[in-house]
Nucleic acid binder design. Structure first.
Lengths: 239, 239
DNA sequence: AGTCATCTTCATGCATGCAAGACAGTCGAT
DNA sequence: ATCGACTGTCTTGCATGCATGAAGATGACT
């Protein structure tokens, strides 16, 4: 066991995490040397990690100009949401037929917790539990490739979702939509589960348009950005 | 223009192409030094290319044991087909509403060519035109992220699709399904276009995929594979 | 003979070195 | 003063070197 993880993999995970968690904002420059020092390695594993992240769409590497956290414009975010909707919809469809009794119990438990936090907790704790809710459904699809793919798209969007739930009434609506999905799932109604999930994620519900109108482009490129965990920021020119 | 491409990017594209075209078969060992010599570079850009391909699921890198072209077992292939179906379905749905007149004309032209080759040509030339047909629809979705995502999944599956159309009667059926899709697309019937495309890509009926996804498949590939473009094959042990 | 331990060989993972290209700042010209 | 070319500095891209760990071979022991 305990597959020894290479430095480059560790770095890739750490950086992806920084991006997803909003610690590294879109447009932020990722200086190889700075990162190498920060993680106590040479530039080589850092470069390899950046290449991996670039291949997955988390960072952009412009030849001879270094790596930058990808900044998505409104259009691209919407495009990803369209994808997200069908992927999560498929997860729900498959989960409706494939979830084991244990998984169904799990789903209900997490959903109940969501309901509790919807009124009791703050948006951030709800956000965490909401993530778990969706993860349960990914897993319930019993399709690993789909699970990974969906999670990857979700992660790419995460910098832009952070404040989504701070919107007034959004949490309540979210949990209500979950409720509908859960019902369909438990009844094994694949078609309905898919449709409801697609609506929950996608354009159809007003959730998204609300989201867009409130979207605070987390630094939609073009202006100088500080280097992650460093003071050696160099202005970033785009295009 | 003419963004100078780095060696690592060139290598990544070349290797991905080898994999998609079936020149590098699943399970094949990708030796860094051999590749470096083949492309006339050092190991560094080769390693970076391999990391990128690994991040996209084309190769697998086991620490200290080198890179291998990913070998998917039956289950994983089916999982990817399930994803492919919804992605292409979404492409069709969006294309039904978004394609420009020029794009619609293009679609009809390519489709006509498909019909011609279906009877006149051999499966391989049809395969090429079939690919173009689908590409037109990807583009018609006017969703770049989706286009890339769909193409990526398609490429991951391509080693396993090669012979799909050699099956008796498959070409005729394929072109007929295309015809139905085209009709829905041109009529702007998004729902129908999506449904038909999903059916076209997916495994007919959910029964089979359900069955397979719930049975545990033994590991595929566990026998020695030759190194790409080299004779220094070393047995590849999996797990 | 079969199994296990040790040794040898070699590929990988990472560090370092070096040349080319990009950005910033300076200087000169209009 | 603005614009452009030139120069200096710095970062990136790639080559190379070296230590670690894995695969295979050799040999001893049961």
């Amino acid at each position: 066991m305990a597959v020894p993880e290479t430095r480059s993999e560790q770095l890739a995970r750490a950086l992806e995490d920084d991006i997803c968690a909003g610690r590294a904002l879109p447009g932020m420059r990722l200086d190889e040397q700075v990162l190498a020092q920060r993680f106590g390695t040479s530039r080589t594993p850092v470069r390899e990690a950046l290449k991996m992240l670039a291949a997955q769409g988390f960072v952009e590497i412009r030849p001879r100009q270094g790596a930058v956290v990808v900044g998505l414009d409104v259009r691209q975010v919407l495009e990803l949401f369209e994808i997200m909707a069908v992927l999560e919809g498929l997860c729900a469809r498959l989960a409706a037929r494939r979830m084991t009794p244990a998984e169904r119990a799990d789903l209900m438990a997490v959903h109940a917790e969501c309901q509790r936090l919807a009124v009791a907790g703050d948006p951030d704790t709800y956000y965490a539990m909401n993530t778990r809710f969706h993860e349960v459904i990914y897993a319930g699809s019993h399709n690993r490739q789909l699970e990974e793919e969906t999670r990857r798209v979700r992660n790419r969007l995460s910098p832009y979702r952070r404040n989504q739930l701070h919107q007034l009434g959004r949490v309540a609506k979210s949990v209500q939509e979950h409720d509908d999905v859960v019902r369909a799932l438990l009844e094994g109604d694949a078609d309905r589960a898919e449709t409801l999930m697609r609506r929950h994620i996608g354009i159809q519900g007003d959730g998204l348009s609300d989201f867009v109108s409130n979207m605070s482009m987390p630094q939609a490129v073009s202006n100088p950005q500080p280097v992650l965990a460093g003071t050696l920021g160099r202005p970033t020119i785009v295009r």
